[in-house]
């Protein structure tokens, strides 16, 4: 974090599965550059020996009894599918 951060916008957008226009790439790279510059100051904090917190309170595994109970009916679960047929979601061909 000591050197100026370089955000490779093409690489990150690919990781995020997000198509960006050339204009979006230019704008976001500039805006996020200034945000990352601001974030650089975190490097100044002494975190040696400090445990990370994923939550404000320690969260442990929560177990429930393995008992079947009613879930959403198929029609309700598929209600918002963009394309469906025979109780299944239709997607573009995956295997050539």
């Amino acid at each position: 974090m000591s050197s100026a951060p370089q955000l490779d916008i093409d690489h990150v957008a690919r990781l995020a599965r997000l198509a960006l226009t050339p204009e979006e790439k230019a704008t976001f790279a500039a805006q996020l550059g200034s945000v990352l510059h601001h974030i650089e100051q975190l490097a100044r904090v002494d975190v040696s020996g400090v445990e990370p917190s994923a939550h404000a309170f320690a969260v442990n595994n929560v177990w429930q009894d393995d008992v079947a109970r009613p879930g959403l009916p198929v029609e309700a679960a598929l209600r918002n599918a963009p394309a469906q047929r025979d109780h299944m979601v239709v997607v573009p061909k995956v295997v050539e």
Partner: peptide
């Protein structure tokens, strides 16, 4: 989109410790 890009970046290989892990420690 901006936040997805930033979040993907701070979690990406090579940056995770410097950003995300450090932020979780500062959170403590």
């Amino acid at each position: 989109k901006r936040r997805i890009i930033l979040g993907t970046y701070v979690l990406s290989s090579g940056y995770y410790d410097a950003y995300y892990l450090r932020a979780q420690k500062v959170r403590t």
